[in-house]
Design a protein around this nucleic acid. Structure first.
Lengths: 372, 372
DNA sequence: CTGAAAGCGCTTACAG
DNA sequence: CTGAAAGCGCTTACAG
């Protein structure tokens, strides 16, 4: 008598039972073929029972489903099905940042929510991939995806070039070759918020940027730093918008100091902001245009701790319009970009519900008390 | 001459080229078999070139890889491989809450970070599934996963019963049959923080709980509500811990009012907290034990807006120890549970790096200025 | 309404 | 070090 692999110590006792009834032993997975054999019908019919109810009589279908339940067959194997049909019903989201950062960042989380919502509504599922740790290719398992949504400019574009061919690819917030992009007009939005902020003419305006420089710079951007070209970072577009507004108001952009933070997190922002807030009063900016809400909110927190009055002592603007900015008083003056909508749209494109074409979402100026 | 589907307008010009060299036309996907045929070697050897470098000479392998690149073959198809090997290298995380909630909740995000980090380090990938929308079974695509991490008690446990058999399952923060759980001792942690809070004896202690009742209740829990049994919610354990501390300090728990919120979000908490803060001064609690940091932080924000002094007018404690609670002054007094570590451990178990056995993580009392 | 047969693209003993 | 062959579990024209 052969023993089947994985049998427990009890197996021998049940051997005769197994010999009489051809139920596959618990060690082997039950397949559609087993089910067909037990019912003495073709595998095609069993397959139809699960996938095309209209292709067989209700009575037969019922018998099949009942028997499936009885022998513990939980439906066609997804791996086999995906090979056969060529589709996995999985969409991969490739994040330019680390997963840890992305999952804890409000903007990325909102984007993912929007994507997940649409995928879910269409029976698809979301696979999370970081573009950071893996150098040249996504992990093997991710290449099962039917399509790819790429969020943010990857440090290494060869990963995108190595994606399995002929599968849809949508870029979010950056341009990549001729693949369609979902994004907002960062320059226009920044120009708008700067124009609003400059209706009250500041004595000492300043900017806190996000990853603006070629070499890492967590602090004031001095002459020795070179700014990234606009195709490498959306924040460069925001800077262009700010500068255009400065010029229009008769302020020489070259005279406006720019600080930079390397990562959009509380921890990374704190030292830079402290440096600014601890400046002597006559050098401390009275207007701070921040390139994200996370930065602006951190300014707000630290400024309050120092007893600064907002907006009397310092006017502050953000960018993004995350929920947290509206949770507290004073409310943040900011530009809202609807990241959930961005995600929804990208997902709709990948699923073919929207044409694969560049798409711009509108932004909205939100005037709060930090810069009325 | 046959035209191949998907050919561009230029194709006819290249027809003779295609006829001379048997490169698969661009319309058909290139397979390992094609590559083997072109090199006149077996598919086994090509497969080995990608999967088992030690099984063939470096020279041959090099030739294979070079030719692969030349014809645009980007490696073995993941779908076929997963069928053949039986493994997908995908781990599904099933979230009891909606994806939108989970992605925007700090505790869930930290858990996911921890999971992603470990999966990534072992070449696995994370599939996100919500346990909410789908009634009885996970979406088909999710059943490709090699293992399942389930976070939080599902509204419908039959989904877990319908998971493909014989694949590892780890529960986080709840108990499910005999599958291993990663969790913290909520009762003990709550007892500890309540003991700390009660070292200063309050006049009017109160509790803000999270989903404590059988029927939805967003407000004060009155006699008509029944509390959920402890097996249905971890917050019930937290309440038990609080009550034990009350009793020890000579406070009758039945005299301590309990408010409840239905969801751990700013928006849902606000009306409940306003109700409490707007109580006449002599009825307003002077100690508020909150069952999450999100609740406690919202109390803090709204209390400050009303000009209440924290902790003089009201002492506040939280639960979870999310980063946001330490970003602002006053710092939150809370219990830190290391959700990242929880995620790491659950992922390690699923991958077989840790024994599949119940695991308790320690918690840590953090004493901030909201309840010194 | 049902079934026989081919084949999706790979990996893996196994033999040489 | 290399190759011939089986087969993972399904779905899909196609024929009846």
């Amino acid at each position: 008598m052969e023993t089947s692999g994985g049998a427990t110590a009890l197996a021998p006792d049940h051997a005769t039972l197994y010999m009489e009834t051809p139920v596959p032993s618990s060690s082997r997975r039950i397949t559609l073929k087993d089910l067909a054999a037990r019912l003495d019908i073709s595998t095609a019919t069993v397959s139809n029972a699960f996938n095309r109810p209209d292709q067989l009589s209700p009575a037969l279908r019922d018998r099949i489903l009942r028997e499936a339940k009885a022998i513990g067959y939980s439906g066609p194997d997804a791996k086999a099905r995906s090979l056969r049909t060529g589709r996995s019903r999985i969409i991969a989201v490739i994040l330019a940042e680390s997963l840890t950062y992305s999952l804890n960042d409000a903007v990325a989380s909102e984007l993912l929510s929007g994507i997940a919502e649409v995928l879910d509504a269409h029976g698809h599922t979301l696979l999370l991939v970081s573009g950071r740790q893996h150098s040249n290719r996504i992990p093997d398992s991710a290449s099962m995806a039917d399509g790819f949504i790429v969020y943010g400019l990857m440090p290494n574009l060869t990963m995108l070039a190595n994606l399995p061919p002929q599968r849809p690819l949508v870029a979010v917030d950056f341009e990549f070759e001729d693949c369609p992009t979902v994004h907002v007009d960062n320059e226009k939005a920044s120009y708008a918020i700067a124009c609003h902020a400059l209706t009250v003419l500041p004595q000492r305006p300043a900017v806190i940027g996000l990853r603006l420089t070629e070499q890492a710079c967590n602090g004031r951007i001095t002459a020795e730093y070179r700014l990234l070209a606009a195709e490498y970072t959306i924040t460069r577009h925001r800077l262009i918008g700010f500068r255009r507004a400065f010029v229009e108001r008769g302020i020489d952009p070259a005279q406006v100091p720019i600080w930079n933070v390397e990562e959009n997190t509380f921890t990374t922002c704190v030292p830079v902001i402290k440096e600014i807030l601890d400046l002597p009063k006559d050098q401390r900016p009275d207007l701070l245009l921040c390139m994200s809400d996370r930065i602006a909110l951190t300014v707000l927190t630290l400024a309050e701790q120092r007893g600064l009055r907002i907006p009397e002592d310092m006017r502050i603007t953000g960018f993004d319009g995350i929920a947290e900015g509206q949770y507290r008083a004073p409310h943040l003056t900011t530009v809202r970009q609807d990241s959930v909508a961005k995600g929804r749209f990208a997902a709709s494109m990948i699923l073919g519900k929207e044409p694969m074409a560049p798409h711009w979402l509108k932004t909205e100026l939100i005037i709060g008390e930090t810069c009325p």
